[in-house]
Design a protein around this nucleic acid. Structure first.
Lengths: 244, 244
DNA sequence: AAATTAATGTGTTAAAAAGACACCAAAAAA
DNA sequence: TTTTTTGGTGTCTTTTTAACACATTAATTT
């Protein structure tokens, strides 16, 4: 045993009394896809510090609010959506990451259908969709967060059918392929891609066709939601390992 | 724009003043491997609350200490090691997860060579190695943390050469195979496993043999450290997808 | 000393998956 | 009607995986 006072150890508050209370924030990396480019929902700050500069959407965790609840609240404030797909990315806790006050930030990684959210909610937060490849410098360590989120998106989407979260309810295989090409920034073979996607048996042919097309109209598919959620953690090699 | 007072928004402290300060803890899921079984380093609490019950090793993040530094400090207190392999698992923040006071906990996932750590340090923390398949009930949400950590270990080890962190510097391929069989709780084909491992070119033949063996002595390999770190994030399908 | 036993190391073959590529169909524009 | 663009499906080759058999080493038993 160590030499510390056993009374201190066994006193109910001992371990808690010494802990420092810190601000706990959530920052959201929100991805979207407009049909051609991978996009990021960024906030132009109209408050200090760093007013006028770009940042991620964030907020503090409140005392009587769980982490999940806080995430849903902040994503709702930003998008007007109640059921945004998100996962934890990583928690950032460098001492000086926020110059105003020591803040621990839990970074979230969210995927939304860019056409389905509430544009007014985003505008109220001063948020705009920015192409991933033209994103500006971000405040604090937000740039690092975005890089990690892109890594995670690429990592997960290569093996799990996560990409569907970025598409509308009904979509075509060429649209899905364009999404994957945007995520990995590389062309994919149309025929092999189609075969791979269909072999997952996750898509249901709606019988409809994409009337917007000016040439041959592609078949519109929808997700087999039940199967999708059941198999969510199983593997599919959408993108070959060496390239992810 | 929303209707809130622009002065409040642009006041430097506005957003921070409302944030609640919370305790931020780290909890460590520490895995080891004794040659036969996957093990967990657990603490028998000698302090309240839940004195006498089992928990993960944890501690609070201090005011002038980054998250990484806190992790290294706590892992050092537990193992006496300075360079423990760890990753963030997930951050837990349910309101009532700790009955004493609202606490956000960053759960860490650590892998150590069970024979290389400081046994006295562990004893000072009242920590013991427990077989994964005989682990007791844990306090708070620590049981959930361990389940998630096992999922993550299985997930990562199936594709990345992370398992080496649990082995001594020199090891044989049969030892590595036993580790994988313990992680996935399933037998693997000796010949296919060996071929797969050697095809990564990550192992260097030391020329030595495992003299402890009572039958045919297996070749001792060591990691090609440089290559290991360089290729750390690349994929190797050690375990076939359907089984991980 | 020979035979037995338990564990290690390597090779072979068939099946499955991935990758490269060619052709046909639909719809609008020239 | 021809051309252009995009979408859908098929085939062949190469690579990878999975299943399996046999030979080797070293200690123990007979």
């Amino acid at each position: 045993m160590q030499s510390s006072d056993p009374l201190t150890l066994s006193s109910p508050m001992s371990r808690y009394a010494h802990g420092e209370r810190l601000l706990v924030a959530l920052d959201c990396i929100v991805f979207g896809f407009d049909g051609d480019f991978l996009k990021l929902l960024l906030v132009k700050r109209n408050f200090e510090p760093e007013k006028g500069n770009w940042s991620l959407m964030g907020g503090f965790v409140e005392r009587n609010e769980g982490l999940e609840a806080a995430a849903n609240r902040i994503l709702f404030e930003l998008t007007g959506l109640k059921d945004v797909y998100f996962e934890q990315l990583q928690t950032f806790g460098d001492v000086d990451r926020d110059p105003v006050e020591r803040t621990i930030s839990v970074a979230l990684f969210a995927l939304i259908n860019i056409h389905a959210h509430d544009q007014d909610a985003a505008r109220a937060q001063n948020a705009y969709w920015i192409n991933m490849d033209r994103r500006p410098e971000l405040i604090f360590d937000h740039g690092r967060m975005v890089e990690l989120a892109l890594d995670k998106l690429r990592y997960k989407a290569a093996m799990h059918p996560i990409g569907f979260e970025l598409l509308p309810e009904k979509f075509t295989i060429p649209q899905l392929q364009k999404l994957y090409e945007a995520i990995y920034n590389q062309p994919l073979d149309r025929r092999n891609f189609s075969r791979k996607i269909l072999s997952t048996r996750l898509l249901i042919d709606t019988g409809e066709k994409n009337e917007k097309s000016t040439t041959k109209k592609a078949v519109l598919y929808k997700l087999d939601q039940e199967k999708y959620h059941r198999q969510f953690n199983s593997f599919h090699y959408f993108i070959s390992p060496g390239k992810g």
